[in-house]
Write a protein that binds this DNA or RNA. Structure first.
Lengths: 412, 412
DNA sequence: TGGCATTCTTAGGCAAGTGAACAAAGTTAG
DNA sequence: CTAACTTTGTTCACTTGCCTAAGAATGCCA
C-alpha cells in the first residue's frame, strides 16, 4: 500500500465508518438521527461528524423543518470528495468505471477483453487505459482511493489472486493484484463479480444499513453476492453464494463441476443457447452473450421457442432464488449482471412468483425482487464500490466478534 | 488476510467475551496463545484474564512444558462456575437439561410433552419441574445464568414468542417467554431447535472460534442452525436455515407449505414413514418418531425396503446439505436431532459423498460431516448453551458493524 | 552461578466514548 | 415583542479499553 493514498483520515474508529455508512444509506440525515441509529451519544456524533466535515467527506446542506425546536442540520456525503476506479475483467471485454463517493458513475468505458493475450500485456494495457482516462476526465488523482478489480469467481483468498475460470486459463496463478498495484500505482482490491455487484447495489441503490439482501448475478456463470446488516457474507473461504452449482434436479444433466442437475448447466445462458441450437434454431452471434441476447429479444417479441426456453430457465432460477432466500432469510433479491440486463424482464415474473410463495412470504415478511438499474456494468460499478466500501467501512481483523444474542424476553 | 490491527474501537467489552470464547474452544490455553489469537497485547490479556479469574469464571490449572523460557500458565473455564438450564418443548415430550460452563450435562430428564394441555398449565408444570430439580441436584441457584427454551421453528422475533407449528396450534400467540420468566424467576431466552443445536455443538463440541458450520437438525421438521466465525447467522427475521422447504424436485409432491418438492415432504421422517406404509409395511409405533426409529433399525439389519426408503431420503438430504454448504461456504456440517440420532449412520455416507463432490471440495477446502455426540438431546443442550453464550459472549447492540474488507493485495 | 529466552505484570499515556451542563435556534402563548 | 418551552448540537471533565515500554518471574543451558 503506497503511503500516498489519501485514505479517509487515519483509518481508525469504526464509529466513523458506521456513521459514514448511515449517511450514505440515508442520502441526507441529521446528527440526532445518527444518534438514534448508532446508539452513540449526541456528544460523540457531534465530534465525529465534525472531523468528517473537516476532512471534506461530509457537507452540511441546509436545514430540515422544525419539529418544535431547533431545526436539524442535514448532512450529506460530498460526492466529489473521493473517487474509486472499478475494472471488470472478463474474457469478452474489460469494463472500466470511475465512481464518486455517492456511488454515481463519473466515467465509464469499455475495451476489448483479456482474450488470449499474455496477462502481463493486459495489465500494462489496463494501467495505460486508467492513467490516460484519469487525466482526460480531470479527476484529481489525490482523491482516488484505489482500484477495484473484479472477475468471474471463485477467488482464492490465500493467494489474493483470482482463480482460473474455464475460459481464462492463462490467468491461473498470475499475481493480478500485485502486478496492477505496481503498474497503476494504486492500491488494488480483488473480488468476484457477484459479490462486487452486491456491494455496488448497496452503494448506488441506497440500500438500508440493516437489511439482508443478495445480488443474483448472471453472466458467464451464476452467482450471488450476499450482504447482511452491512456486511458481506463470505463464508469460510470467501466463496459463499456460488449458487450456480446447487442442484435443482437430482436426475439432471452432468455439469462441468461434476454434479448432476446444477442450476448453471440447466438454466445458465450457455445452457439456454445450447438448447436453442439443439431445437434447430439458427444463431449468428459470435459468443454466448450475443446469442443469449438474440434469444431474449426474440422471446420479448413473442416467438414461441425462445419464450419457452427462457421460461424454463427462469423456473430453475426461481428455485435458486427461493433457496437462497430460504437459507439466508433474505428480504430482497436483486437481479443483475449482463444476462439479466438482456433478459431480466423475462425472468422477473417467475422469480417474483416463487419468492412470493416462499416459506416466509407467508408467516413473516415478503421477499422483494428488483432488476438492477445498472445491470450491464454491475460488476464494474461494484468493483469501484468495493474500494469505497473498504475505505469507508474498513473492518478491523483483530478481535473476533462474539455470538449475537438470541431472542431475549424482557418481562417483569 | 492482514494481521490484527491495533486501535480497534468497537470491540469494547467484547474482548472479555472473545477471550472467554477462545478459552472455551481451546479447553486449556495460555495467555500468550490468547495474545496471538486475539491480536491484543499481552498486557491487555493479562488484565482481562485477571478479572476473569477474580470473577471465578476461569481457573489456572498447571503449567505447560517450557519452550526454552518461562513455562505457560494454562487457563481453563471453571465448569462449575455457572450453570444454565435448557428446555426442549415439543408436542411429544419436554426434555430438560442442566449444563455447566463447560457445556457438559449435569442433569438431564424428560417428561410428557405439551400435548393438548393449556399452555399456562404446561408453564406451571415446567416451573415446578425446574425448581424441584435444582434443589435435588444441589446446584447453587445463584450460579444459574438463565433458562433457554427451544421449540420447533420458526420463531417470531418481533413478539419474542414461538410461532405456531402445525402440531402445537394452542401455543400460537402465547407469551411463552414472559410467562416462564414470571413462573421460574430466571431470565428466559427463546430460539428454534436447529439454531440452538448449533450453539450446543459450538459449546460441547469444542468447535473453533473462526469456523463456519451448520447443524443439520432433523426432528419434526428439517432445519439448519448456522454459525459463522462464532456468530449465529439469523437473517432478516431470525428464520435463516429453514431448509426443510427448499425445493429439490420441481415436479415433486405438494408440501404443506404450498410449494412442490420440498426436502421435508420428500425426505423428512414423516415422508419416509408414509412411503413405508404406502409400500405395504406394517408399522406399530404410536407416532412418526417411533415408526421412523423402527424403519431405521430394520434398515440397519439390512431389510431391503426400509434401506431403500432411507437411501432415497438421504439422497435428498445430501442435496440439501450440499446446497447449504455451497450457499454458505461451510467447512463442517453436523447431523443432529432425534431423527439423526436414530438413523444418522444410515445418512452419513451419502451426505458425505455429496459434500465431497461439492463445488469447493475440489478447488478449495473439503466439507467435513459428523454426527453429533448428543443428537437426541441436541435441542435441549442447545437451549442451555444459548444461555451460556448470551452471558459469555453478549453482543452489544449499539454500533453497527461495517462491511468487512474484500481481499486486499499487499504488494511492494 | 550467570546469561538467555519466554511468559506474564505493572505503570503511564492516548483516544474513543460518556454524562452533564450549556449554547443555539426554532415554536408557541400571552 | 417578550417569555417560556422544545429540540438540536457543542464543550468539557471523566471513565475505560487498549497500547507502549519497561520490568519481574521462571524456566533452560553453559
Amino acid at each position: 500500500m503506497s503511503g500516498s493514498q489519501p485514505g479517509l483520515g487515519a483509518a481508525h474508529a469504526s464509529s466513523r465508518s458506521a456513521i459514514l455508512d448511515l449517511i450514505r444509506a440515508a442520502g441526507t440525515i441529521s446528527r440526532v438521527e445518527l444518534t438514534r441509529a448508532t446508539g452513540l451519544t449526541a456528544a460523540t456524533i457531534s465530534t465525529v461528524v465534525r472531523r468528517l466535515i473537516d476532512d471534506g467527506l461530509v457537507l452540511e446542506v441546509g436545514r430540515a423543518e422544525s419539529t418544535g425546536g431547533k431545526p436539524r442540520m442535514l448532512l450529506q456525503l460530498d460526492p466529489s470528495a473521493r473517487y474509486a476506479i472499478g475494472v471488470h475483467l472478463d474474457h469478452a471485454g474489460i469494463t472500466y468505471v470511475i465512481a464518486n463517493l455517492g456511488g454515481a458513475i463519473v466515467a465509464r468505458w469499455r475495451r476489448p477483453g483479456a482474450g488470449s493475450d499474455d496477462p502481463a500485456t493486459v495489465v500494462a494495457r489496463i494501467a495505460a487505459e486508467i492513467r490516460t482516462t484519469i487525466t482526460r476526465v480531470g479527476v484529481d488523482p489525490a482523491r482516488i482511493l484505489g482500484l477495484g478489480v473484479v472477475s468471474p469467481g471463485p477467488i482464492s483468498s490465500s493467494t489474493g489472486m483470482t482463480l482460473t475460470p474455464p475460459v481464462m486459463q492463462r490467468w491461473a496463478e498470475f499475481p493480478l493484484g500485485a502486478a496492477l498495484e505496481d503498474a497503476v500505482g494504486l492500491s488494488v482490491l480483488l473480488d468476484n463479480d457477484a459479490t462486487a455487484a452486491a456491494i455496488g447495489e448497496y452503494w448506488s441503490g441506497g440500500i438500508a444499513t440493516g437489511s439482508a439482501f443478495a445480488a443474483l448475478y448472471m453472466g458467464t456463470g451464476i452467482g450471488a453476492g450476499i450482504i447482511v446488516d452491512g456486511t458481506v457474507y463470505r463464508g469460510s473461504s470467501s466463496n459463499a453464494g456460488e449458487i450456480g452449482h446447487i442442484c435443482v434436479d437430482l436426475d439432471g444433466p452432468v455439469c462441468w463441476c461434476g454434479n448432476l442437475g446444477c442450476v448453471e448447466v440447466l438454466a445458465g445462458p450457455a445452457a439456454v443457447v445450447a438448447a436453442a441450437r439443439d431445437a434447430g434454431l439458427e444463431l449468428a452471434g459470435r459468443n454466448v452473450a450475443e446469442n443469449f441476447g438474440a434469444l431474449a429479444r426474440a422471446a420479448s417479441r413473442g416467438e414461441a421457442l425462445p419464450l419457452q426456453l427462457l421460461e424454463r430457465s427462469s423456473r430453475y432460477l426461481g428455485v435458486a432464488a427461493q433457496t437462497l432466500a430460504n437459507v439466508l432469510d433474505l428480504e430482497l433479491v436483486i437481479l443483475t449482471g449482463p444476462a439479466f440486463a438482456l433478459a431480466g424482464s423475462l425472468y422477473l415474473p417467475e422469480i417474483e412468483r416463487r419468492l412470493g410463495q416462499s416459506f416466509f412470504a407467508r408467516g413473516s415478511h415478503p421477499v422483494r425482487v428488483t432488476i438492477s438499474s445498472n445491470a450491464p456494468e454491475a460488476a464494474a460499478v461494484g468493483a469501484a464500490a468495493l474500494v469505497l466500501q473498504s475505505e469507508l467501512a474498513p473492518r478491523q481483523a483483530g478481535v473476533r466478534m462474539p455470538l449475537e444474542l438470541p431472542l431475549e424476553v424482557t418481562a417483569g
